[in-house]
C-alpha cells in the first residue's frame, strides 16, 4: 500500500496473458522493420519471436511473423497499432483464426563421444532431425517443427553435450486454399 505519490494512476491491471502469432504484410521499404520493432519497444509490448523476409519481391512485400504475449486488451492494441502504420497492408492474428500452421527451424550443435553421442543421434532420429554436419566428436542437427517440439529437443540435448543453438523464429501460414 506504500506506493509513491504520483500524478498518474499507477495501479496495474492483471488480466491473464495470452500468446498470439501475428502475420504482418508490409511494404518492403527502408526502415519498415525498425518501425515495427520500435512500436513494440516504444509501447512496452513483448516480442517472443520475430521472423521477417521478403516474400513477393516483384511487389516489394515482406511478411513479418511476430509471436507476442499480453493481455487480450494489449493484443488488440498491438494489432491496431500495427495496422495503422503507413507501410502495413494487413495484420492477421493467426491464433484467433485458429486454422494456421506454425513452424520453426533450428540448428543444434552437440558435442560428445561414446554413449551420449549415440543417444543424441537416436533422439535426433526420433524427432526427425537431420544431421547436416558431423565430426568425430560433434553433430549439427537441423530440426523443423513447432516451437515446443524444438524446445523439447534442445532440452533433451542439454545433458548430451549441447554447444549452441540457432533458431529462425516462427513462420506461420493459414490452412486451406485462401491467402491472408
Amino acid at each position: 500500500m506504500n506506493q509513491p505519490a504520483s500524478a498518474y494512476f499507477l495501479e496495474e491491471r492483471h488480466d491473464p496473458n495470452e500468446t498470439h502469432t501475428l502475420s504482418v504484410l508490409v511494404q518492403n521499404e527502408p526502415g519498415v522493420l525498425a518501425r515495427v520493432i520500435g512500436l513494440f519497444s516504444g509501447r512496452g509490448y513483448n516480442i517472443d519471436s520475430l521472423t521477417v523476409s521478403e516474400t513477393e519481391s516483384h511487389k516489394h512485400l515482406s511478411r513479418i511473423t511476430i509471436v507476442t504475449t499480453g493481455t487480450p486488451t494489449v493484443i488488440e492494441q498491438i494489432k491496431h497499432q500495427l495496422d495503422r502504420m503507413i507501410p502495413v497492408y494487413r495484420v492477421v492474428d493467426m491464433t484467433i483464426t485458429g486454422r494456421s500452421i506454425e513452424r520453426e527451424l533450428a540448428m543444434v550443435k552437440v558435442r560428445g563421444r561414446g554413449d551420449s553421442r549415440v543417444e543424441a543421434l537416436r533422439l535426433a532420429d526420433a524427432f526427425r532431425a537431420r544431421v547436416i554436419d558431423a565430426t568425430t566428436e560433434s553433430f549439427v542437427f537441423e530440426i523443423t517443427g513447432n516451437s515446443s517440439k524444438i524446445s523439447q529437443f534442445i532440452d533433451l540435448m542439454r545433458p548430451l553435450g549441447l554447444v549452441e543453438v540457432a533458431r529462425t523464429g516462427v513462420a506461420a501460414i493459414g490452412r486451406g486454399p485462401e491467402g491472408m
Binding site: T73, E76, Q77, H80, Q81, D83, R84
Partner: peptide, 11 residues
C-alpha cells in the same frame, strides 16, 4: 477515426 483508440484505456 483511429481504430487503435478503441478499447485502449476504456472498454
Amino acid at each position: 477515426i483511429d481504430p487503435s483508440s478503441i478499447n485502449k484505456n476504456i472498454h
